Simulated assay, not measured.
Amino acid sequence: MQRLDDPSTPTQLLDDADLRELYAYPRDLTHPWMRVNFVSSLDGAVAVDGRSGGLGTPADKLVFGMLRELADVILVGAGTARTENYGGARTSEALRERRAAAGLSAVPPIAVITASGNLDPGMRLFTDTTVPPIVFTSSAVSEKKRRSLADAGADVRVIAADDISGDALVAASTEAGWNRILCEGGPRLFGRMIADNVVDDLCLTFTPVLAAGSADRIAHSPASAVTAMRRAHLVCDDDGTILTRWVRDSPAG
């Protein structure tokens, strides 16, 4: 892969260590840093036939794994967890060692956001994982439903009375001691976090295909909410995949 946005070295070739440095979280964080990761077709589709996996390229998959490696926790909306058939984050001995050296837990937990608690206890999220999944939910969910998720192995945490806001997610992450947050969607969760002014960082891959169809864009909310971002990097793979990172101009919140 080559970095495109550095005029001093326009053909700079990047290895895995270089990519980890490009995607590193700010050093010495004292509060949660909300990073969002998405892949999109060139014409703006966030999925093919309902799933983002149809847009994946080798470069995107490499960075997807790297972003997980660098994070304290992986946030995902319940709809995306269901559609993408989420299981726990994968690991290896080398990954565990790198995370330990960075002061991180061996495996980042998946934290699913659901104000309704509508998760199937039999889904892979609960049955195919090496660490307990976390369920961020609301007090509007019945005790019976919360207990069924806990019995399936989830760490159920009530973080809101009803609707779950971006501020509630940041507060829950602060309470848990997680500063390096990675959110993997979906579009409505991302849109809500933009509207709530809690997004610090967007990692966006453009895969070299046109998809058409009726897929969502990467963020969706009832009203527009503009957040100024600055380019952190542009990286291109030989197959045309473009990996970008954008950081907000001013602190979130």
Rank of each mutant, 00 (worst) to 15 (best):
D5R: 01
D5I: 00
P7R: 04
T11C: 09
Q12I: 15
L13I: 15
L13S: 14
L14S: 10
D15I: 03
D18Q: 10
L22A: 14
Y23G: 15
Y25G: 01
P26L: 11
D28H: 14
D28E: 03
R35K: 11
N37M: 03
N37Y: 02
V39S: 06
D43N: 08
G44M: 02
A45L: 07
V48L: 14
V48E: 06
D49V: 09
G50T: 13
G53L: 15
G53E: 15
G54P: 04
T57V: 08
P58T: 12
D60E: 07
K61A: 03
L62R: 12
M66S: 08
E69R: 01
A71W: 05
V73M: 06
V73F: 11
V76Y: 11
G77I: 09
G79T: 15
A81I: 09
G88D: 02
G88T: 01
T91N: 01
E93H: 11
A94W: 14
A94L: 07
L95H: 10
R96A: 03
R96N: 02
A101Y: 15
A102Y: 09
G103H: 05
A106I: 15
P109M: 02
P109Q: 09
A111K: 06
I113H: 03
A115V: 03
S116N: 04
G117M: 09
N118C: 11
R124H: 10
R124C: 04
T127D: 01
V131T: 04
I134K: 00
F136D: 13
T137I: 03
S138Y: 05
S139E: 06
A140D: 11
A140F: 04
V141D: 02
S142G: 10
L149Q: 06
A150Q: 05
D151N: 07
D155Q: 10
V156N: 06
V158A: 04
V158H: 06
A161V: 15
G166M: 09
A171N: 07
A172S: 05
A172K: 10
E175R: 05
L182R: 06
E184Y: 05
G185I: 00
R188V: 07
L189M: 09
D196G: 00
N197V: 07
D200M: 06
D200Q: 08
T205D: 05
T205Y: 12
T207H: 11
L210T: 14
A211E: 00
A211D: 01
A212S: 14
A212T: 02
D216L: 08
A219T: 01
A219W: 02
S221T: 03
P222Y: 08
A225L: 12
M229Q: 07
R230C: 07
A232R: 12
H233K: 03
H233R: 01
C236L: 14
D238M: 12
D239G: 04
R248G: 08
S250M: 13
P251L: 10
P251C: 10
